[in-house]
Design a protein around this nucleic acid. Sequence first.
RNA 1: GUGCCUAUAGCUUAGUUGGUUAAAGCGUCGGGUUGUGGUUCCGAAGAUCGAGGGUUCAAGUCCCUUUAGGCACC
Length: 441
Amino acid sequence: MLPRSTGLLINDYTSFWPAQTLLGGLYIYEFLVEQFKAVKRGWLSFTHQISSINSLMLTYSYKYVNDCVIITSVMDVKNTFFKGIKPADDGSRSAILQTRVGRVMTPIFMPDGTRGVVKSLTPEQVESTGVQVVLANTYHLHLQPGEQVVSALGGVHGFGKWRGPILTDSGGFQIFSLSKLRKITEEGVEFKHPVTGEMRLITPEKSIQIQLELGSDMIVAFDHLTGLDNKSRKDVLEAYERTHRWLERCIKEFERLTVDMPEEQKPILFGVVQGGLDKELRRKSLEIVQSSNVGGIAIGGLSVGETKAEMYDILNFLTNYYDNSPRPRFLLGVGDPPDIRYAIEHGIDMLDCVLPTRNARHATVWVAGDKKIHLTNSKYIDDNSVIDPGCDCYTCESGYSKGFLRHQFKVKEPLAGTLCSIHNLRYLVRICEEYRGGQPA
RNA sequence: GUGCCUAUAGCUUAGUUGGUUAAAGCGUCGGGUUGUGGUUCCGAAGAUCGAGGGUUCAAGUCCCUUUAGGCACC
């Protein structure tokens, strides 16, 4: 329960209608109090049915600042799953993505919880950063402990206790990046189990089956990825063509397995655009994916070794060919702040990356201006300042000094990685929030 | 007092019958990381081999003296 003294501030949200004009602060406060019983701190968005006013379904995003509740956005939502798309002058767009377990606001950054959890963080800590969606990896969970086990333990939600939406990767990337022994055929990819040594076959159908059994809310088609080595045009072309053949099989399998599900209970399937750095292939690939029966468009095969300029070039190029269908665009594997900004300003709605959490565990954190610092540097040994005084993450607001964090990293105390993961995630989420129609106070 | 053992980078050690710029781990310092093989990866600095003398073309390696620490015996 919020203390009576807690005030309510509503941002001047000119780009969003009609909440702040229709509803007085007091009115919102009345029902927010009920909602806040469950969530003590965070930026979770939630919806509330206001029966007295036109039966509007509104989604609110809020945060605490100095013990005040601040509504950072209020949006009207209809029934389709990607709604309220609002383009901005800078090329970005904000919207609401409706999943079967809740709505999230885009643009959105999604941390990778490879094995069912974001490393070193509890779900509550992840929530506190404003993260709305978490990724899990099909490849890892399939190998260990297996999708049947995860399913028996309540699916990815019950398993890792993340209440928000979960997106699973197809497993394709890991097979290509982590498995030394692998054989790619038209049927699928055969690879050696890294632990048991036995050969496993993952097909497009199998990947969809696993992801559905895991209980994921958003799933990704099994694609053929190139770009990890010096690739020839022939390889790129082959991967590109195979990706599209596999996409058809993924869609068919997805439709078969979800045919009896109510529409609102179906996960969202993302098709993957490939084509390497070849613009013609990229354009055609986008065209093919967009003309397919998929709920979302994923851009794959970037941030895998090419230069930033090359990646930017492709992202910029693709903006000319996105269609008008209300589908989210998901850029796979990008998490460097400047890259995130560039992607969002070129029409990307969703991104995931291991960078914030991996860097954090290795003592590298972002500070204002997208600069990164190494907390283990000796100059921080007696530095009593927080990572970033302008940051509102738990770590910075609690006052953990750089000197303290440096010491904990030096003695390998895991808490240091946890605290910095919270900071880095918050940093990326704040970038996304800047594009959601306005900046929180 | 006598005998024996040890002494190599900040720490712990490797250095083969004496043979090219004395090696490694940890630590220190710096960097990398983009659909995550948990506590990672890469690089750098850092040693006049306890000290002094001798033998030899050549000594961390052999000899002598000496210093410090350890063990054993008087």
